[in-house]
Amino acid sequence: MTEPAKSEMKWQRKDLLGIRELSVKEIVFLLDTADAFKEVGTREIKKVPALRGKTLVNFFVEPSTRTRTSFEIAAIRLSADVVNISATASSLVKGETLKDTAKILEAYHADLIVLRHSSSGAPQFLAERLRSSIINAGDGAHEHPTQALLDLYTIRSHKRAIAGLHVAIIGDILFSRVARSNIFGLLKLGARVTLVGPSTLVPREFEKLGVTVSHNIDEVLETADVVNLLRIQHERQRKEYFPGIGEYIRLFGLTKERGRRLKPDCLIMHPGPINRGVEIDSELADGAQSVILEQVTNGLAVRMAVLYLCGGIAT
């Protein structure tokens, strides 16, 4: 393995709870560390001994296949031993509290716990109570830090710098942890951020975070350097938030016609899973400007970096 990270910095955090708490230096250090790990995935033997002997628990209280798999592969490539616990299999469904379940994981001497939870703040709750490293894999509508890091990593790998870019995040912002983590990260690194979507899902209150709010996708297409489309989450939407998918596509969908008005070098991103033909046209999702699959690959490198750095702190 190549020596990770040339940036001069000593990583101090045992937990990764969110992007909001990170300094610019820490974010850059994480991205630089991910750079070093990206190469590992291209080798014939895709494994380094960095976390050998460490136990990682993927504790997914809210269902997820994609993020859990990504963390699992990242951990395996670092030689950690991985256990997956899902909501239906855990004692939480039998009425055990999160605190008790977590104490039991700690009693197994889990070095790292990757937590996905439907309640905002759940990872912080664990971090305050456990010695294990807590990695937030998405909490409620709060943060999804590794998704934001992989988005930043992907942008950085295509654009020389993030500072000065105009990034449009389009869709359901209100209920999105991906949006919040991206907003915090992009603003820290100097990008200009516009949130686009219906007023019910992109309330004006977001402007206080330092972003621009727009309810008109057509006014951002021509100036955006990156468009990040969020999944319109039918399952979570109550019907009063917008009238229907048809109207959503008409007002906010990245259709073929709208795609033509993007700058030629504008990146199209999506955290997945995609609703083809809803938030994004199917061909655009697979087109030349799309970096959606790169995001997935970069996710492994970023998560390896996070596990490596935080896992090195945990005792």
Partner: peptide, 10 residues
């Protein structure tokens, strides 16, 4: 419902 609910996603 205000700044902090928006920030924290609560």
């Amino acid at each position: 419902e205000g700044y902090w609910s928006t920030l924290l996603g609560l």
